[in-house]
């Protein structure tokens, strides 16, 4: 095959998806950042000209607790998901072929189940008239008038619940490739089971660990449905503010400024991780 025809074939195959993503992913992302510098119009659109007003408005100390809450809830969710996900991935990897397929299916089903339904399930479970509340009251574990919904704790619980499969799947993908014989080797060399797990297994699946952490953390950063549905008035996250600016205030530039900030906060660490992994791959090969 000649080089010229090879090159044109490559372009022909690449162009459809490349164009689609350029038009509907890259350009919109750039537009969001640009919109932050446009004035708002009253119909929820964008007015003519350019302005820095939106950025000035963002310089408001009222945003600080929201930022902090967004970050700390995301970090806590990520940590809990990894701590729970690692042993599950390990168990799946060491299970026999049949059990492994069943476990995989059991993780995939909630992963594929409707996001709203999963939140709704918790909402009705934790409802003051719901089964969990009644059960806990009858066991006298909580007082009669306790409210389980609308806490920041509830937000964290449901965040973990929705994100856990996202953590388990990449961890399992890495654990499946991990040579479990290495753990026997570590035990043979005198490591206890905990040390073998921490010093051999965990570093062995670090690539899955990184993708799981990035996946969960980034997904949490943009959440607004969960705090809106199971959280209280003081549990707003950054995503809540963006949605509020778009749908209640109909202020697109303001929402864009918040979204643009979040986008940079997501993409910059992503690029660093991507570069780091690429570098690591070169080193290994």
């Amino acid at each position: 095959m000649s080089t010229a025809s090879r090159t044109s074939r490559q372009w022909l195959l690449t162009l459809p998806s490349l164009t689609w993503l350029a038009v509907f992913f890259v350009i919109p992302a750039i537009l969001v950042i640009l919109t932050a510098f446009r004035p708002a119009d009253l119909q929820g659109g964008v007015g003519p000209g350019w302005t820095l007003d939106t950025l000035h408005e963002l310089n408001d100390p009222a945003y600080l607790p929201i930022l902090w809450r967004t970050f700390s809830l995301s970090a806590a969710t990520t940590l809990i998901c990894l701590v729970l996900g690692l042993p599950v991935a390990f168990q799946m990897a060491r299970a026999g072929q049949r059990l492994r397929q069943v476990l995989l299916l059991l993780v995939i089903i909630p992963f594929l189940s409707n996001f709203l339904i999963r939140i709704f399930a918790w909402k009705s479970l934790l409802h003051p008239e719901g089964p969990l509340t009644k059960l806990l009251i009858s066991l006298q574990l909580i007082p009669e008038n306790a409210v389980l919904l609308h806490h920041s704790g509830t937000v964290l619980l449901v965040l973990v619940y929705t994100q856990l499969p996202f953590a388990i799947l990449p961890l399992y993908a890495a654990a499946e490739k991990f040579d479990l014989g290495l753990l026997d080797a570590a035990r043979d060399l005198g490591a206890g089971p905990w040390r073998a797990f921490a010093k051999v297994f965990v570093p062995g699946v670090r690539r899955g660990l990184i993708s799981a952490a990035v996946m969960v953390f980034v997904c949490c950063l943009g959440q607004y449905v969960i705090p809106q549905m199971v959280g209280g008035a003081s549990d707003e996250m950054l995503g809540s503010k963006i949605a509020q600016r778009v749908f209640s205030d109909r202020n697109l530039p303001h929402a864009s400024a918040l979204a643009g900030g979040l986008m940079l906060a997501v993409l910059v660490p992503m690029l660093i991780v991507a570069l780091w992994q690429q570098f690591g791959r070169k080193e290994e090969s």
Partner: peptide, 18 residues
């Protein structure tokens, strides 16, 4: 794959509005 949904929704909305 790692773009939060809200950002993808927001940026597509910006595209369509503009």
């Amino acid at each position: 794959l790692v773009m939060p949904d809200i950002l993808m929704g927001m940026s597509l909305l910006a595209l369509f509005v503009l």
